[in-house]
Design a protein around this nucleic acid. Structure first.
Lengths: 116, 116
DNA sequence: GTATTATTCAACCAAAAGGTTGAATGAATG
DNA sequence: CATTCATTCAACCTTTTGGTTGAATAATAC
């Protein structure tokens, strides 16, 4: 999935998978070894390991090796970038819900009802 | 891509493609017909049409048909949801960059230098 | 030193993504 | 009505994704 993808591409793609979002959520409580991280997921350890690698590739996770155990830790920077990109559009869900927008939404919703 | 994917899955996946993020950006200036929207992209109209459908599937774009022309308009709601999910982790890039975190980052960066 | 444990690597697979081209549909225009 | 224009549909192709299983590696424990 990597290779010449922008940071933002990688971050969004990484977060598009619900398992990976759960991993991120799980890691907010602190560092976890791969095996412990994988424990609640209904898939093989290998699958989780791959997900972790995707998150690592997007910079969302850091790995600290201690003997045979790998401790995983959340890195927020890419989330911050996602938040930044997204917030460009805040004005859109605030000011830009203007008369025309609402009118068009209303219109559309009426059409949708009609066609069911 | 669709089919039993959560809203958030769909939104993140839709935004993971740079072409689609450009489309979103482009639509902030107002409604556009598919052809006009597609104009600056170095790919077939068909490809853009497909991207639009993905965005539509994620609720990020609404389509208003007027004769043979389809006018596309940005819908911010899913962006809002993305922002909401992401902002759960704000505390992480604020408070949670604590002593331990910084220490581990430092440690890791030193290791990385060493291995190059 | 032999098991056991933690993790990845490698090969494989089915499904999805992102693009292409060519044909179909359906309005507008001459 | 024949043509052109706006758009999608359909088929195809290649690459990526998300999972599997089985083997490799490497550290720990007995």
């Amino acid at each position: 999935m990597n290779d010449a993808m922008s940071n933002l591409d990688l971050a969004f793609a990484a977060l598009a998978d619900p398992t990976r979002r759960r991993i991120v959520a799980r890691l907010t409580r602190g560092e976890l070894r791969v095996t412990d991280l994988a424990q609640p997921f209904a898939m093989s350890l290998n699958a989780v390991s791959k997900h972790v690698k995707v998150l690592e590739g997007a910079g969302l996770v850091r790995r600290r090796r201690e003997g045979r155990e790998h401790y995983l830790r959340l890195r927020a920077a890419p989330l911050r970038e996602v938040a930044k990109w997204t917030s460009q559009y805040e004005r859109f869900w605030n000011q830009r819900l203007d008369a025309l927008g609402r009118f068009l939404d209303q219109q559309q919703e009426n059409d949708d009802e009609g066609s069911q």
